[in-house]
């Protein structure tokens, strides 16, 4: 096979006006086998669409957990290891493990900091962003319309036909 660049954005898109229509369509699409790699586009986050797509718990929560725990270890570790490297006795107070209550602040702040940064990384990585090579399929999907996009299909093919049957107000090739 000759190397050819596959345009991930080439396919058929069905524009929907109503939330319930698109949810019904998603449920039907999921039962079919010829909609591989389909995407649903929506102007905001409706839980109805999440349910229709059958999403469970997002893996972003693992990013948050791992990030936050790393932060806790880093915060306490930083304070304790610098103590271990060269102790500073201030006001006769013993450094090291005995000063742990004072290090709670550092541990807490690093927990939040690392947790927040890894949550953002989670959103970006799991949402496949940034993605400069993808183009905007239909500007209406960031306004008030829903869409189902099927890569590699055409509007006259069975997928395009099916989207029309499901109530798409417009079906076109991208």
């Amino acid at each position: 096979m000759a190397k050819s660049k596959v345009d991930k954005d080439q396919g058929v898109i069905g524009i929907f006006r109503h939330l319930d229509t698109v949810c019904n369509a998603i449920e039907k699409v999921r039962e079919r086998g010829d909609f591989a790699g389909y995407d649903v586009l929506s102007p905001t986050s409706y839980h109805e669409i999440e349910h229709a797509c059958g999403f469970g718990a997002s893996p972003v929560r693992l990013f948050t957990l791992i990030g936050a725990l790393t932060g806790t270890c880093t915060g306490f570790g930083l304070a304790l290891l610098t103590d271990w490297d060269w102790s500073i006795v201030v006001g006769g107070k013993t450094p090291g493990i005995y000063s742990l209550p004072a290090y709670v602040v550092i541990g807490f702040e690093c927990t939040i900091l690392f947790g927040a940064i890894s949550t953002i990384l989670g959103i970006l990585v799991m949402g496949r962003m940034p993605n400069p090579k993808r183009r905007v399929l239909d500007p209406r999907t960031t306004d008030d319309r829903f869409a189902i996009f099927v890569p590699g299909a055409t509007k006259d093919g069975p997928q395009g036909q099916f989207l029309r049957e499901c109530g798409a107000e417009e079906v076109r090739n991208t």
């Binding site: 995407d39 929506s42 669409i49 999403f55 997002s58 959103i123 970006l124 949402g127 940034p130 960031t142």
Partner: peptide
């Protein structure tokens, strides 16, 4: 960041937010 508003993006975004 090239946000497309796919259901998957919204799903991860809502959880993370």
């Amino acid at each position: 960041f090239g946000w497309r508003g796919t259901a998957r993006q919204w799903w991860h975004y809502e959880t993370g937010y």
